[in-house]
Amino acid sequence: MATRQAIDSSHKRALIMDDELSIRQVLGEMLRLSGYHCSEAIEGAEAVALFRKAVAEGRPFDVVIMDLGVPEGLGGAEAVQQLLAIDPAARVIVTSGSATDPVVEEYHRYGFSGALRKPFRFTELQQLIGVN
């Protein structure tokens, strides 16, 4: 189940989707240090539901970061299409531990705004989301 923190309108909002708790925790901390409030999802269908609710409430996420491969549930490549159907301007970044995955190599063709290979550095994330 996703967790949600209190929202402060002065902060940006991020949605993290990854099946590994440790990745969600580390990525969440990186984003919080960069000024984001974070919501989390374990798999794509949960992320899509959180995204849809945020858009309906008029509080869309500024960035969504999705793991490409999720063993049980909807992965990033499938979920991004649903997010873009809800909001074509959604900013969605794909993450993957695979060094040669074509989705990561050609992320734009799949609807993603950017890609991060795991493991990635804090500075790589900040550069991709526009935080210095």
Rank of each mutant, 00 (worst) to 15 (best):
A41M: 11
R24L: 12
G44V: 06
A45F: 04
K12V: 05
G58D: 12
V70Y: 06
M17G: 09
R121G: 07
Q5H: 12
E78K: 07
G111R: 03
I23N: 13
I42D: 08
L15Y: 08
I23R: 02
G130N: 00
V131T: 10
V104E: 07
H11Q: 15
V80W: 02
A45I: 01
N132A: 14
S39C: 14
V104F: 06
S98D: 14
L74T: 11
P119D: 12
A89L: 11
S96H: 05
A14L: 12
H108W: 00
L50M: 14
I129P: 00
R91W: 01
E46F: 10
P119Y: 12
I86Q: 07
V63H: 01
T123Y: 04
I42S: 09
G35M: 09
Q127V: 00
V103W: 06
D18A: 05
L27D: 03
Q127W: 00
D62S: 12
L128M: 05
R59W: 11
D101C: 11
L33N: 14
G76L: 05
E78A: 13
E106V: 00
E78D: 13
R52F: 07
L31Y: 08
S9E: 15
R32T: 15
A77S: 14
I42C: 02
A79P: 11
F112E: 02
Y110A: 09
D8M: 11
V80P: 02
V48L: 07
L84H: 09
G58R: 11
A2L: 12
L27V: 10
E72A: 04
G35W: 08
A90V: 05
I42K: 07
S113Q: 06
A90G: 08
R91Y: 05
A90H: 06
L74Q: 13
L83E: 04
A45P: 00
V63I: 12
A85T: 10
G69F: 11
G28R: 06
T100W: 01
S39K: 06
Q82I: 00
L116N: 05
A79W: 04
E106S: 05
G35R: 07
Y110W: 14
L74P: 00
L27C: 03
R52A: 15
G97H: 09
H11D: 09
I42H: 07
I93E: 03
D19L: 03
L128I: 01
E20C: 03
S22Y: 13
G73Q: 04
